[in-house]
């Protein structure tokens, strides 16, 4: 995307804000969407944009001058070796890094044109628009129903049975748990717990869902269920996923960003391009397993 699109993006912000209140929102989007390279269409409109992003932990630089544009209704995968800053980048998008005392962010990240690190942006309000799923399934030690309802409750919205069912259906968990909604979320298997966490993240209907290695603690069967789920989620949400598994990135993502040690973004392009014909030799070495 070029600079010329920026005003356009801002105009879309308003449009986006309006459609969010429209109940038929998702239907319209599904109809409009064209087919893309991996099956996800999307309007190619930028939702999150970073400019010259640097993140420091104390004196140590974790992200080095990263600029990228994350498109709407697509899956963007962040790959790279351990400690390369993928998770740090992800946690900048919903300002979870604010919770770490020593973390310092420079540069800008905009969400539909608004700088999220602006002083008048409330990080708590931001996180209500940007949901997150963590590496280790972390359901609350509450009932399945209360887990899904948590986001609605803390945001002061009405909790309805319909919304709980809808979220669990969207997370492909409803059929398995519909008779045990009052049982503890911890009683589920690891894969089910992770899907519960996804249901919990999407129940308040965020715009973006961030996933930090959501399948790394799961067995291959559970992981493939999550992958299928991501494929469906992207119809309604913009998904950004960190993964260690390059096959996974190739399978599910539309765009891939490759980070290398030092927090440097070395390549960001369509997934097919990154995996088949990368610009940078280091990316090719990494993908083919020569290092990392």
């Amino acid at each position: 995307m070029s600079q010329n699109d920026v005003p356009d993006t801002e105009a879309q912000t308003n449009a986006g804000g309006e459609t969010r209140s429209d109940p038929d929102d998702s239907l319209v989007r599904t109809d409009v969407r064209a087919t893309g390279s991996t099956g996800h269409g999307g309007s190619n409109e930028t939702v999150v944009e970073t400019r010259d992003l640097d993140v420091y932990y104390g004196d140590e630089r974790a992200i080095d001058d990263v600029s990228m544009e994350i498109p709407e209704h697509q899956v963007t995968a962040l790959i790279g070796p351990s400690g390369c800053g993928k998770s740090t980048f992800l946690r900048c998008v919903n300002r979870m890094n604010d919770l770490i005392d020593v973390a310092r962010v420079e540069g800008t990240i905009t969400l539909r044109g608004t700088d999220i690190y602006d002083s008048d942006v409330d990080p708590v309000a931001l996180r209500r628009k940007v949901g997150m799923v963590f590496q280790k399934p972390n359901p609350f030690p509450k009932s399945i129903r209360d887990n899904v309802a948590y986001g609605l409750e803390v945001q002061g919205r009405d909790v309805t049975e319909d919304r709980i069912e809808e979220s669990l259906r969207a997370a492909a968990l409803w059929e398995e748990v519909k008779d045990q909604l009052d049982e503890s979320g911890l009683a589920l298997s690891g894969g089910q717990q992770q899907r519960l966490c996804i249901a919990r993240a999407i129940a308040p209907d965020p715009e973006i869902v961030l996933m930090d290695e959501p399948t790394s603690a799961l067995d291959p069967v559970a992981a493939s269920k999550i992958e299928d789920l991501i494929d469906e989620l992207v119809e309604d949400y913009t998904v950004v996923i960190v993964t260690h598994n390059m096959q996974q990135a190739a399978r599910i993502s539309d765009k891939t960003a490759v980070f290398l040690t030092g927090g440097e973004l070395v390549e960001f392009d369509d997934t097919t391009t990154v995996f088949e014909n990368p610009d940078d030799d280091r990316v090719e070495d990494y993908i083919t397993g020569k290092f990392g």
Partner: peptide, 11 residues
Amino acid sequence: DLRQASYGMGA
């Protein structure tokens, strides 16, 4: 993890 999950939900 639980704190993170809660903050991540916009609590």
